[in-house]
Amino acid sequence: MEKIEAKEVDFYYGDFHALKHISMDIPQNKVVAFIGPSGCGKSTFLRLFNRMNDLVPGSRLEGEILIDGKNIYAPEVQVDELRKEVGMVFQRPNPFPKSIFENVAYGLRVNGIKDKAFIEHRVEEALKGAALWNEVKEKLNASAYALSGGQQQRLCIARAMAVSPSVLLMDEPASALDPISTAKIEELISDMRGKVTIVIVTHNMQQASRVSDKTAFFYMGEMIEYDDTKVIFTNPHKEATQNYITGRFG
């Protein structure tokens, strides 16, 4: 079953044609990786799935993006509601200047939940889900800034997951982390597989091959190839893909 469907998507930053006629289906509860050189459009494409590009002046979308069969760019769609369903984690961890507990509880409170016991339960569940609970359970009221970079990134994942989104977008979530923190993030992605649809942008090809079910290769605004990750990394069908993943690009 398809969770996200992109249909003939073109995207412009002013006159710049950033995405060219992209159609793809992202299956439900699978992990899909976007790879490609800098400036190829993979992050731009990712940000269309929760309408982050709406904030970019002069940007324009053609085509349709459907989540659960509904066009997320239809006029009646509430962007806040959409982002409850489609969480996002960025390259650099961006915790709020609040306590660890309040960071995770934030989304629930914004959504009008006041039941203290329920919030406590969800915070614990989200922190356990992000493999952070054992490290922070004794200091939930400490500032989120007191955590290490890797812990902050897992806190951001917990914060995103606290409101139970069905899609999680990850834009190079481990590129600023050390190998141990990176391994923890990858393990988290693996644990979340089957429960949530994950789309991850990464420059780390080994990471894409380790964590994803399907991989899409982008180049100069086009999606060159999209297939099972095993196929992309063992026998890609397009020469450009092969050149990129074997480091012969340029």
Binding site: M205, Q206, S209, F233, T234, N235, P236, Q242, I245, T246
Partner: peptide, 9 residues
């Protein structure tokens, strides 16, 4: 070098 695709084959 963690080869992939044609290099791995």
């Amino acid at each position: 070098f963690s080869p992939v695709a044609v290099d791995l084959r």
